[in-house]
Every structure is written in C-alpha cells, then in structure tokens.
Design a protein around this nucleic acid. Structure first.
Lengths: 246, 246
DNA sequence: TTCCTCTATGTGGTAGGACCATAGGGCTGG
DNA sequence: CCAGCCCTATGGTCCTACCACATAGAGGAA
C-alpha cells in the first residue's frame, strides 16, 4: 500500500513559502530587476491575502540571500528594493556549512585552487592596466615590515580577490571571496602556527609578485602553475592534517 | 565635521539579526552540531527577551539557508533541529542571482568546467566500484531511445553530479549540483535549439562513456581533457551568444 | 490484561492589531 | 525666502489569540 502511484503525499507549503515563490518567480522571469521596488509590506498583505508576518518572513529570507534591501522611511530608498548582493550571502552560507563539517578544509582548498587557476588564466588574457596597477600596489603594501596576521590576511585576501575580479568572471570572483571569507578563521589559525613569520611573509609575497608578473606578461599557463603551487605549498606547510574541532 | 574619529555612526542591528547572530555563533564555535535541537520558539523568546516574530524571522532565514529544519508536533522530530542541507540553498541562491544577471552564463560554464575537471581527476583516483557501477548504468540509461529533453537533462545532470560525488569532494559536488540547478532552464532552452536531437544525444552519450572509461581506468588527465571538451563543445554548438532576456 | 480511543500538551504556523523609529514631503510662520 | 514643524508612509517590534499537527498518556472497552 505504499507504492500506489495514485496517491501522492500532500506537500504542505507554508504561507511565507508561497509568498517567497511568487516573488522568486517574478525575479526568474525577469519581471523584477535590480533596482525595482517591491510593494510595501502592507500592500503585499492586501494583494496576497496573507498576514504581514508571512510577508515579512519571506522578505527576511530574500534579504538574507542578498536579493533585496530594505529601508525604513518614505520616498526613494524606502521599502524593499531588488538588490543582487551575492557575495555576502554566499560567504555566510558557506561559512556555516563549513562549520557544520559539510565540507572538509582540504576539499575547499582543492576547489579554491581550481578557481584561482581559472582566475589567473583569464586575468592574463583580460586584465586591464588599471587593475594590474592596483594589484601591483597591493603586493608592495604586503612588503611593508611589521604586518600582523590580521592585516596580512586582509591584504592577501584582497590580492587574490582582485586578481579574480580582474579575470572578469564575476561568479568565480564571488565564489573565491566567499570561500576565503568562510575559512578566514582557519587561515588566521594557520598563520599562528607559522614558525618564522617574517620569512613566511617574504616568501608568500615573492610568490604573489611572481604570479602577478606572469599575469602582466600574459603568461596564463605560467601563472596557473605558480598560483597552484603557491596555495598548495602554504596549505601543506601549515594546513595540518587535523580536519576538525576546537 | 565629517571625519571626526571621535564619532562613529551607530550601526542599527535589528533584533532578528541579533537572534541570527547568536545562533550562528553557536554553530561556528561548535556548540550546535547537526542533529541538535534548538530550544522551541517560545523558549527562545524567553531566554533572548525578544518577540516571537523576531525569533521566527531568524529561524526562517536559517531554514532557507539549509541550516535548520522545522517540524510541528511534539517529541522526536518536532521543533527546530540543526540540519546541514547545503545543496538546495546554494542552488536557489545561485539561480536567483543568475536571473538578476549577476553572473553571465559563460562565466558559469567556465567555472563548471574547472569543477568538472577537479571532479573527474579525483574521481579517477578515489572512486569506489559501487559508484562506478552506478555511473555505468546511468550511461546505459541514456542510450535508451526516445528520451525527451527533460528526461535526458535529468539523466545528464545525475551523471555529472554522481561523478562529482565520486570524487569525494563534497564542496565541489554541491557547487556542481547548484550550478546545474541554476541553469536548468537555460540548458533545456539550449536542447530546444539542437537541430538533430538524436545525433546530439548519441554524441553526448558517447562522450559520457569515454569520460567514464577514463575514470575507471584511473586516467585522470585523459578524463580531464575529455570532460572539458565535452562541456565546451556542447556550449559552443548551442550555447549561443545571446546573454540575456526573455 | 490488552487494545483502542480520546484527551492533554507542546510544537510550529497564521492572523491581526497596536505601537515605535525613521525619513521624506509639505505646510506654516517668520 | 527660509527654517522649523507636523504629516505620512515605510519597515521594525511586540503582543495576543488561535489553528494544525503529532506525540504521550489517561481512561474505557473487550
């Protein structure tokens, strides 16, 4: 009596999910674009025939996904507008699932390496001078002596993310940034395990410089090799085998 | 009077965000693990000193992120439990941001190729016999004549996703699945543009078989080359240059 | 005793109302 | 003309009530 195809279990769809679905449909079929304003919460209550609670739950979810922004007040910015802030939402999502051990750190490193390779390869072909100039000044900033872990990580992240942006592949760049955000704490912990910090900084910075030089010269293959080695080397040296807790 | 370091603009943190933060903290530092039950909504109201609305908005966000599941009733499943359903949330997020044109289809294809390469390379080294058997039966299912677009896409997706799972890199597999979900409609549209459907199915299936054979033989490099060509060829043949609307 | 049924209780789900904080717009008085 | 005030629309929060659901336990029937 279980496999009877005549009967299908009813799927209970909560109200706020139905609201969510209707808004998502309008985004997916292009009726709602970035910058558009949604009706006010109270208007949605009227047109959808649901409570304001349900409307708000749907809007809060969309906001957490970076799909909409909400502002109080009247005129212009007020109300909910379609946004498109993908990066933060992606980071948050990955970080939490990382914490839930859905993903191993090693897995993430492997994925990151592939993304970095894609990034430098395409950056070698597509980066424009302004972007390269910014990258170069970043590598210089990293040579400044006395950088602490936090600050160095910041510059390091910015270098890799800007490199990804320079590839003009927005998805790769967003994913890269999200992955880096998601493992920031692990990275800082790894920094803390480094024996000779100054030497590590020097060699990492030198590697950055070499990668950037290859990108500037349009040598995509060389840049790929260098960036893969750059990441793998660091991870192998301090990444540790302990996959887990505390 | 604007750059005075003594004064910093206050950051308004809405209450439901504070609830969100507290729960996220407990996940990030390991206090909450998959399977754990959260206090009931009414209990959280008490201990946090906020309204049930705010609690619910936070929980709905977490649920949409695949972090928790919620069930009514009493005992066992009832209440909110920590879950870890990363895939659906990731797909949804990417699909919406794709629709908002945050990402170009070409960008996504490039990323997908890198992930597929990683997947087949590691699957060549790590896949176990059971997984390979399943993959092979999938390729056989795809040779069945008369498959419509929808059904073929389903099998095609399952092949690639199972291949990724066989690499034992959960992050890569999840991302792959999310990317495929996000562009399902574009894929079906591409199928509709194919002139000789039967011939296309035949060649795609043959390519799958070749990839799988390379993976079974542990020839990672060969599999990488084949899978990259497989995706690129299809996209170039029917992907079209039109990046956009309607 | 055993089994069934009904009830109590605890859970999330929904609704509606009230009020607050904010940010423009418009009016009013100087 | 302008400064200041009030009005209004928006999201933000809280509260209360009630519904739907699922289990556990009490109580009755065989």
């Amino acid at each position: 009596m279980s496999a009877d195809p005549e009967w299908r279990t009813v799927r209970r769809v909560r109200t706020h999910e139905q609201v969510l679905i209707q808004i998502q449909e309008r985004i997916l079929n292009g009726q709602l674009r970035i910058g558009d304003r949604l009706p006010s919460e109270r208007e949605l209550v009227q047109v959808l025939g649901v409570s304001r609670n349900s409307v708000r739950e749907a809007l809060r979810v969309l906001e957490a996904m970076g799909i909409i922004d909400a502002h109080t007040g009247s005129g212009r910015d007020a109300g909910s507008t379609v946004a498109g802030r993908s990066t933060d939402a992606l980071s948050n999502l990955l970080r939490l699932h990382m914490a839930l051990a859905q993903f191993r750190l090693g897995d993430l490193v492997d994925v990151r390496i592939e993304l970095e390779r894609l990034a430098v390869r395409q950056a070698s072909a597509e980066a424009d001078p302004a972007e390269l100039t910014q990258l170069r000044s970043l590598t210089e900033a990293m040579t400044r002596p006395g950088l602490d872990h936090e600050r160095f990580h910041e510059l390091d992240s910015e270098f890799h993310i800007r490199l990804a942006r320079a590839s003009h592949n927005a998805l790769a760049a967003d994913l890269m940034q999200a992955l880096r955000d998601a493992v920031k704490n692990e990275m800082l912990a790894a920094f803390a395990r480094v024996h000779d910090w100054d030497a590590a900084v020097a060699s990492l910075t030198a590697e950055h410089l070499a990668i950037l030089t290859a990108v500037e010269a349009g040598q995509g293959d060389e840049a790929e090799t260098l960036v893969a080695r750059h990441i793998r080397a660091f991870y192998d040296s301090v990444g540790g085998e302990s996959p887990s807790s505390d």
